[in-house]
């Protein structure tokens, strides 16, 4: 029996090319055309000057020297770093909330649903909604005046010092629910008896969190950390566009919005591509390092028994 199996496997190792083309072809075609090819084309464009209309012209490292001395890019990087400064809250907040929800506090499932609401809605809706809420005559200022705190009322959306922190807050506010979902899903599979054991050992909540919860969800915490870094560089764009369009001036222009505006508002798509591809490759390296470090599962996920279809 096993002898014939090996024989057959030797004669037919792979599925027929026609079948493969039929099933894999369409999806791979779209992925290669619009997800892979633009990366390679982007690397090429990064070394050219391209105005978006005529063909790109090779200009060596010009885009990269421009990057190093561009004050607006520096401002944009500074703005994105304001989001990154808040990353610890963004990473640990959802974990703590999930741990508390897992403890079955009253209202736990209600809280979980409430936290997901901003994740469901378009960042455009959130950006525009907060324009209304934070407007000069908007409900926040009205409420502040109503309770005698009128001196706190502010023209929030045009306050240069504040606007980027508001955008950073919105970025976190609109995505922390996703982290809560990830962590509650991970915690649901933690063995309850570990907590019982810790409790019998006299561990308090903090100790149980430190010695049971944290080690149990290390993998998801690492994953969420990588996601947070990627989102910090790539998910402020729509909120920023809808809320303040990067202004006033460049006060809330994050790196991703900088790329978009350079390409489609200031007519420098070649330069924008150079910045974008650099950022993309750096995030790619970060992700690959993470995947290498977290490769704990050595076994193959494929079941290759029998002959192929």
């Amino acid at each position: 029996m096993s002898g014939t199996m090996t024989n057959r496997r030797r004669t037919k190792k792979y599925s027929s090319p026609g079948t493969l083309l039929l099933f894999l072809g369409p999806a791979l075609f779209v992925i290669v055309l619009l997800r892979v090819w633009p990366v390679f084309q982007g690397v090429f464009i990064a070394f050219t000057s391209w105005d978006g209309i005529r063909d790109p012209v090779f200009n060596g490292l010009d885009n990269f020297t421009r990057m190093l001395s561009d004050p607006v890019l520096l401002t944009a990087l500074g703005n994105t770093s304001k989001i990154l400064v808040l990353a610890p809250i963004w990473i640990l907040g959802p974990l703590l909330l999930a741990a508390v929800i897992q403890d079955r506090i009253p209202g736990a499932s209600f809280f979980k649903i409430a936290y997901v609401l901003p994740v469901l809605v378009s960042p455009v809706v959130i950006g525009v909604l907060f324009v209304i809420i934070l407007g000069p005559e908007g409900p926040l200022n009205t409420a502040l005046r109503g309770v005698g705190l009128g001196f706190l009322a502010n023209n929030w959306t045009v306050d240069t010092n504040l606007v980027m922190w508001i955008v950073a807050g919105m970025v976190i506010w609109s995505s922390f629910g996703l982290g809560v979902l990830l962590f509650t899903a991970a915690l649901a599979s933690v063995d309850e008896s570990l907590y019982e054991a810790a409790r019998i050992d006299g561990a308090n909540w903090g100790q149980r969190f430190r010695y049971v919860t944290l080690p149990s969800v290390r993998g998801v915490t690492e994953y969420w950390t990588v996601m947070v870094v990627i989102m910090a560089f790539s998910s402020a764009i729509v909120l920023g566009y809808a809320f303040s369009q990067g202004g006033p001036g460049y006060a809330s222009t994050t790196v991703d919005l900088f790329i978009y505006n350079q390409a489609f508002r200031y007519g420098a798509p070649g330069y924008a591509t150079a910045v974008g591809i650099t950022l993309f490759l750096l995030l790619g390296i970060l992700l690959l390092v993470f995947l290498r470090l977290s490769r704990r599962r050595g076994e193959s996920m494929f079941d290759d028994s029998g002959t192929p279809l």
């Binding site: 790539s234 991703d256 591509t273």
Partner: peptide, 8 residues
């Protein structure tokens, strides 16, 4: 992220 690759 796809947002940083919008131009290409």
């Amino acid at each position: 992220p796809i947002t940083v690759l919008i131009p290409p």
